[in-house]
Design a protein around this nucleic acid. Structure first.
Lengths: 252, 252
DNA sequence: ACTAATGGTTCAATAGTTGAAACAAAAACT
DNA sequence: AGTTTTTGTTTCAACTATTGAACCATTAGT
């Protein structure tokens, strides 16, 4: 891993922390030496990606992230488009809903809305979802080219739980099933006690660019709710895809 | 300059370009070798800060910027707070209005709204404003501690135009004047033919954190409009400061 | 089919990175 | 107030990632 990735990892640490963090804490969380962490933080700070409080000397996320994030948002409106749908679907189903965007071999969670039920699935934007071990991933693959699926399944397929599919053939089968159904399901493949249904979001060329998913505590997942929620994500994901393509939809 | 800064510079290049850019173009713009630019871009891409189009092989800003930008926005609401004020002030005055946030010895432009007049000042979010050569900078200094002002004026003070003040004493004087007036003015100190008025935005501890500025083509800047626009930025900057402190204001 | 331009790869020389150690400055004790 | 502990900062020799010229592969243009 190069220096740049290490430095960017510090940003991720600051994002996951809730609030400012001191040098020692950051270095410990990243597994770097204090001196190393500091040099990186100063460089990030010089570019506005991180801000150091002049009193407490703690570090926090910087304004550059907002500036560039906003620019990206204007050019590529997936996040903006998806947010109201995620909110609505969360309200409608009462379950945690999240959208992800494909990036660098993974699905990056870009928008989450949490269930209000006492027991709920919790996940935050920035969470990285592996393609082979999530409903989102299977849904994404089910909308991808055979070449892409092949390439993905040839890479290492790490095991996260006892239910994770790590065999290319098993995953292929799940992908085919998802293609038939129109949505993908997962049962504790990434985390214990979490089940999901997910649909692919496509661009105007019908290529998948991300996913929409509903994540439910497995104890609430019945065959009935799978087909019900599955139909809902599929429908909503299609609506989002249509909106991205500039096509008219039932909703606005 | 370290490797991290160089890589982050590539993000800035992509942000300034309007649309995707190829490897050669990026390397040329950054002044790096192709191999260097590519290795950095791949590393940025692996972290979601950049996305490579699989067909055209062009690079674009990535979703991580949006994700982390959004997180920062929830923790520190200057951008969110300031945006409606910038819009309103632009509409009211018909001139280009922008807000900036202090970061790493400069003011980083975080929000801009352009005049609709045929001749107007153009600047984009991400623009870096030096403290000593902009109305924003003088306004910021006028709200800063003497120690901070001293430290700033001891650093190199580059000359941008023939009107740039590069003498610590001259800048000190401008700062004192701004403190008396309640707003700062600049006349072609950073760019020819651009004049500005600016006021400081303060946090709940009265410390300056950014600025609000109106940028006008010098040909439209009369003594009258200076005092008029100056009074407006000052008033609006105070309103923003109050809102950030949670205090009630006339507007909502 | 040829040329030009762009993306991608390689590798030895180089320059930036690393982390232990020592130091300074705050906090957190007694 | 004095002592200990923690945290931030600086330094520097060993090391390792970075660099860029040269080369290859691929695509776009004529």
């Amino acid at each position: 891993m190069g220096t740049v990735s290490k430095a960017l990892g510090l940003i991720d640490i600051l994002a996951r922390a809730n609030g400012p963090k001191g040098l020692t804490g950051i270095a410990k969380a990243a597994g770097f030496d204090k001196a190393t962490a500091r040099r990186m933080l100063l460089e990030l700070a010089a570019n506005g990606y991180v801000v150091q409080n002049s009193d407490s000397r703690d570090y926090e996320l910087g304004p550059a992230l907002q500036v560039y994030g906003k620019i990206r948002e204007e050019r590529f409106s997936l996040l903006k488009t998806v947010t109201p749908f995620v909110r609505a679907l969360c309200e409608q189903t009462g379950e945690t809903v999240h959208a992800s965007e494909y990036s660098a071999g993974m699905l990056l969670s870009i928008c989450t809305e949490h269930s209000t039920k006492p027991i709920r699935v919790n996940l935050e934007p920035g969470q990285k979802l592996p393609l082979h071990a999530t409903a989102s991933g299977i849904a994404f693959l089910s909308a991808s080219s055979p070449a892409f699926i092949d390439a993905t399944l040839r890479k290492p397929l790490p095991q996260f739980t006892s239910a994770t599919l790590t065999n290319a053939e098993d995953i292929s089968k799940a992908v085919r099933e998802a293609r038939v159904l129109g949505f993908a399901t997962s049962n504790q493949t990434l985390q214990d006690d979490v089940s999901s249904v997910a649909g692919a979001i496509r661009n105007q060329f019908d290529k998948p660019i991300g996913t929409l998913a509903i994540a439910v505590p497995t104890l609430r997942m019945t065959p009935n709710s799978i087909s019900e929620l599955g139909a809902l994500v599929q429908k909503t994901a299609t609506e989002i895809s249509n909106k991205l393509s500039g096509r008219r939809t039932g909703l606005s």
